[in-house]
Nucleic acid binder design. Structure first.
Lengths: 164, 164
DNA sequence: TAGTTATGAATGAACG
DNA sequence: CGTTCATTCATAACTA
C-alpha cells in the first residue's frame, strides 16, 4: 500500500466514477464541472480539482493516442478529412518569419502519402461526431454518474448540469 | 537526456531568469522586451523569441488557472494573491540597479496607501489593480534580472528598459 | 529487487 | 486570454 502521497492516487471508486463519466461522453469538463466532480469525489478520499483536470486530459489523450496508432496501421482518409488536414497545416501564424518548420512540412508530405484522397477515414468521421457531440452536450447535456450499494458506501449522485 | 529538439527545452538558467522576471512583475513583455530577453538568454542555450513569448503566456495563464481552481477550494481569498499584487507595485519601484526581493513592511504600507484595503477584497478590484499595475509598468518600469557567479558563468545583465 | 508498465503531472506550442 | 493538444518527465504499481 504505497501511500507515499507525493502524488494523487485515486481510489477504485474515484476511478469508476471518472471512467463512467468519460464513457458517458464527457471529455473536457469545464472548470465548473471539474469543481463539482472533485468536490463529489472527495467523499471517497483526498482529491483536488487539478487531479480531475489531469485525469481527463490524460485519459482523452491516451485514448486518442491508441486510436491514432491503430489508424496508422489501418488506413486512409476521405475528402473531408483532407480538408481538415490542410486547415491544420496552415499554422505558425504568430511567428511565420522564424518558422523553421521542418516538422510541419514532413507531416504534410507524410499525410499526403499515407492518405490518398479517395479513401475513407473512420477517424475523421468519429472525430467530427465526437466534436459535435461534445458541443451538443456542452449546451444540452447533463452528465450523471451513480455508484450503487455494491460498493459499500452511499450512492453518489453526480449530476453535472451546465445550468445547475 | 531530453535533446529531442522538436521543441524548446529551457535550461535551468533560462528558467531562473524568466521566473525572476515574472516574479518581479513582468507579465506581457512587448516585442522589444521579448527580443532582448531571448537575445540575452541565448547565452545559456538555444532559444527563440517565440519561446519567450509562449513562456510568459503559459506562465501567466497557468498561474491564473491555478488560482481560479484554488479559490473554490479555499474560499478565503489569497494572501498569496495579495502579496503578488504588492510585489507588482512595490518591487523595484525606485529602480533596480540591484534587484532586491525584499518585501518590507514599508513597501506594503506604501502600497496600501495607494490602494485602500477594502478595494482589494474583490476579485474585480484586484484585477483592476493588476491591469493598472501592468499599464503603469509598461510605461515606467525597468525589469532587471541578474544571475550571480554562483552559477559558474558570467553575470548576466538583463536590464530591459522600455526606453533603452 | 531490477526492469516494465500504467498513469499522474508538467509544460511547450498553438488554437478560437 | 482561456482553453486545448502534443509530448515528455516522474513515479507508483506491477511483474518476472
Amino acid at each position: 500500500m504505497g501511500t507515499k502521497c507525493g502524488r494523487w492516487n485515486p481510489t477504485a471508486e474515484q476511478v469508476k466514477v471518472l471512467t463512467d463519466l468519460f464513457r458517458s461522453g464527457l471529455r473536457t469538463p469545464t472548470t465548473d464541472q471539474i469543481q463539482k466532480i472533485s468536490s463529489q469525489l472527495s467523499f471517497y478520499g483526498n482529491i483536488e480539482s487539478k487531479n480531475v483536470f489531469y485525469w481527463f486530459q490524460n485519459h482523452k489523450a491516451r485514448e486518442r493516442q491508441k486510436r491514432r496508432r491503430k489508424v496508422l496501421v489501418d488506413e486512409s482518409i476521405n475528402d473531408e478529412d483532407m480538408r481538415i488536414q490542410f486547415d491544420n497545416i496552415s499554422s505558425n501564424k504568430h511567428f511565420p518569419e522564424i518558422s523553421t518548420n521542418h516538422e510541419t512540412d514532413e507531416r504534410v508530405i507524410e499525410t499526403l502519402q499515407l492518405f490518398p484522397l479517395n479513401s475513407l477515414s473512420e477517424y475523421a468521421e468519429t472525430e467530427k461526431l465526437r466534436l459535435f457531440t461534445e458541443e451538443y452536450m456542452r449546451e444540452n447535456m447533463t452528465f450523471s454518474c451513480s455508484i450503487g450499494a455494491e460498493m459499500d458506501h452511499p450512492t453518489l449522485d453526480l449530476r453535472l448540469s451546465f445550468f445547475s
